[in-house]
Every structure is written in structure tokens, then in C-alpha cells.
Design a binder for these strands. Structure first.
Lengths: 229, 229
DNA sequence: CGCGGCTTTGATGTTCATCAAGTAAAGTGG
DNA sequence: CCACTTTACTTGATGAACATCAAAGCCGCG
């Protein structure tokens, strides 16, 4: 699960937020860094765990979620690499307010938060770069939450399918990474109605759906439903 | 509308994010700073305007909102002083993605963004302080949006009344700062149903309501409705 | 095979938005 | 200050949207 080899200097992911670090800073980074692998379904951290590391996703796919007082999962984000995993709250809280788990097998780069704070303090360009990245990510989450809220059910399903297609996979054909129930938890509707809406789209020829495999047959129409909804 | 006198060194709002600045930095701040007053209803900035300043609210009450493709207002936040006004996007975008207007007469402290970036670069403690503040604010917005999404109508109305009471006014009796329609735009429901739900609460003795004046007569029951909804 | 979890569909009732009509309140111009 | 106009508020009635419940099919896994 842990891999301590460190080739940060050559890491292709330095552009995520570490492009401004100099030679020595990168070298020190290795001392504060771990690479962690998680199997499908593995929990990266839970609500309430103490925040001790700055983590970002190197490969895989994760979901960020919380448990409501009623005991249901509410999914906040499903994201690909380069989006931070512990983006929110690392500067404002000392315990996580959301859980994160791996939807696909995932690799996390985990850096001691103390060193990140040190870098922010010492390296102004790093501070600016990091703020920019974190802002981008939180902006996206807020916009997505507002987008979902203002849509009706068909609009929500269309929206999330286009999100998977355009943002997550960049392809009109892909395997749904989550269960119907998780889609429901993501866009705040009931599982039955997610399935019903998918069946409607299939009957209307907007999508082709076979188990988890989905093809968006008519992206324009799906876009109209998403926009109008 | 503009007030150029500068007594930043003594400003009671330095704790917002400027507590770590030294003497000289505060002095320079004055060169990059303006104080702007807005009447009730005044627009502080609009979606699409270029972002040139870091702004925060010194007094008053503002709403942050966007216009949906359908032409309706969707309110993202209603906030009191110390919460930044142009918090989001100042590091990730060069044009505002939300509009902000004054619900009550408001005073904004507006600082050239270039100087803020300079401070972040030069003063690590300031960078950390600012990141912490911005994180707190975006965290709150995300949580609130998720909270609203998972509630039914009665729960949403109860939630927003408790928000006004506990967070905005700190009192069980207050004047509603916004119209019924704005409440609807805030919690994503129709105006008629906001009114209906308020009438229900009044009939059940949970609130007393006379025009804009509202008293929460039974906070416990309202809390239950908010929690269960 | 047989069991348990995910999926699908139908039936039902509730929740909610919309429409319409009316009332109160708040501006506006003379 | 009053008549007029407009905007905000309120309520009821209606139908559409949506959640919930129940039953059955499917599929993977022991």
C-alpha cells in the first residue's frame, strides 16, 4: 500500500501545483511524501478523521461524500486525477468534513500538511499557484451543486451523463463508474427515478444502455434536456 | 460613494485577513484601497465583470447570485460582514461568475487584486491566513448548498429561517431582509410554496409573522422540521 | 444451483409547481 | 396628500413531477 520511492523531480504531476518549487524544495518534498494505493472501494479517509496530509489523486477515480443525519450518502463530487482529494477544509478545519473513497483502483500522493504550510509561507509563487488550484476546484464544486439544484429530474440525469462523458471519460461510450443508487445520491433523487429516466432516454433513442455500458447516441438532444431541465 | 481616507492601521476589520501585515505593508495597503458605499439594492458587481479588486464587506448585508439560462435569479449566499464578497474566483478566474448586490445599505473595502497577489507572494503568513479565510467561506457555501438540496420544502424554509435567526441576526425576532421571492430563489422552490409553508408554520404556532417581521416562537420545533426535512 | 444484491417496472399517493384571482402594500405623479 | 399604478403577498384549485412501496427479473458468486 505504501511506496516510498521518490522521483518527485521528474514527476509528471508537478504541474498540478508544484511547478514553482526549486530543486531543493522538491528534494525535501520527498521526505514528507508518500504514495498510497487503494483498491476499488477503498476508503481514503472518513469524515471526522484528523487532517494531517495534503492529498491529491495521481490515478484512478474517487468520490467525495458525506453521510446525512438520516444515514444516507450524499455525493459531493466524483473526480479524476489532478483534482485534489483533500482540497477543501485543509486550511479551514482540522478534521475532514467529507469522506473520500476510490471508485476505481486509485493512487494518492500524500504530503505532510506541515510541509505544505511551510511552502506556502516560504514560497510566494507556490502559495499563489496553490490558491489558484484550490479555487478552481471549489468553484467547480459550487457550480455543479447549483446546477444540479436548479434542474428537474430528467435535466439532472442528462447533466450527469454529459459530465461523465465530457469531463470524466472524454468519450461518448463509456462504462458507468457507479451504481444507479450512487447516481441518485449524486444528483439528489431516488434510485427508482434514476433508472426510470435512463429507461426513458433509452426508449427515445438518446442513449444506448447495456448494464454499465453506456453510449450517448444523441448528445444534442441530451444537451437540450440538460439545458432546459 | 468613494471615501479615500485611510486608517487601515487602526481598522477594526484587520482581523478579517490582515492581522499578519507589518507596519509598512499596512501603510502601502492604503494606496491600493478604496471604501465604497452602496445603497439598498445597489449592485456591487455583475457576472462577467472583470475581477480587478479583492472586496470584503465592512457593514451591511449582501446577496451573491447568478442568472440561470432561463433568466431566473439563483441566490448562492446571503452574508454579513467579514465574509468576503468577491471571495470565490479571484484566484481562478479573471471575470466574476456571480453577481453581488446590497440587500441593506453596505460598505465595501476594495483592494487592488495586484497588491493582494503581491502580499501573498511576499508574506507567507498572510498567504496562510488568506487561504484559511477563503477556505472557511467556500466550505460554508458548499455545505449550505448540500444542506438545501437534501431537504424537502418545509425543511428548507425551516433551515433558512434558522440561518437568518442564528447566523445573520443572532435573535429570535428580526425583519426578513429579503422578499418571499428571494427566499424562493435562495432555496430553490416556488414563491407560492414559500408563502404557503410560512403560513403553515404560522398556523401551527411555530412562527409569528407580520409582513417582514418574524419571530421564531418555537425554535425546537423548527429545528426538528429542519433536521428531519 | 441457490442465495443476495443490484436493477427494472408498475402502481400508488404525496409533494410540489403552476395558474389564476384576489388583497395588501408600496411607490409615483399630480 | 390623494388617486393611480405597480409590485409584493396570499390562497385555492389543478395537474405534473416525484418518492415510495412492492414484486419480479437478472446477474455474479459461493
Amino acid at each position: 500500500m505504501v511506496n516510498r520511492t521518490c522521483e518527485c523531480a521528474d514527476c509528471q504531476f508537478r504541474h498540478v501545483a508544484f511547478s514553482t518549487l526549486d530543486h531543493e524544495e522538491v528534494a525535501r518534498l520527498c521526505d514528507f511524501r508518500q504514495e498510497l494505493s487503494f483498491p476499488k472501494g477503498g476508503i481514503i479517509h472518513r469524515e471526522g478523521d484528523p487532517i494531517q496530509d495534503f492529498k491529491y489523486l495521481k490515478s484512478g477515480l474517487v468520490k467525495v461524500y458525506r453521510i446525512t443525519p438520516g444515514g444516507e450518502e450524499q455525493i459531493i463530487a466524483i473526480t479524476r486525477p489532478f483534482e485534489f482529494v483533500s482540497n477543501m477544509s485543509i486550511f479551514s478545519e482540522d478534521h475532514y468534513i467529507y469522506s473520500v473513497s476510490a471508485i476505481e483502483e486509485s493512487v494518492i500522493c500524500s504530503i505532510k500538511l506541515g510541509y505544505i504550510r511551510e511552502l506556502v509561507s516560504m514560497n510566494g509563487r507556490f502559495a499563489l499557484e496553490l490558491m489558484t488550484r484550490i479555487s478552481q476546484i471549489t468553484d467547480k464544486i459550487i457550480v455543479q451543486s447549483l446546477d444540479i439544484r436548479r434542474r428537474n429530474l430528467a435535466g439532472r440525469v442528462a447533466y450527469v451523463l454529459l459530465y461523465f462523458s465530457d469531463v470524466i471519460y472524454g468519450s461518448r461510450i463509456f462504462d458507468l463508474p457507479v451504481s444507479r443508487k450512487e447516481i441518485a445520491d449524486y444528483i439528489s433523487m431516488s434510485t427508482a427515478n434514476v433508472i426510470r429516466t435512463l429507461s426513458d432516454f433509452r426508449r427515445e433513442g438518446i442513449i444506448r444502455l447495456n448494464g454499465k455500458t453506456l453510449e450517448i447516441a444523441d448528445p444534442e438532444k441530451l444537451g437540450v434536456i440538460s439545458a432546459r431541465g
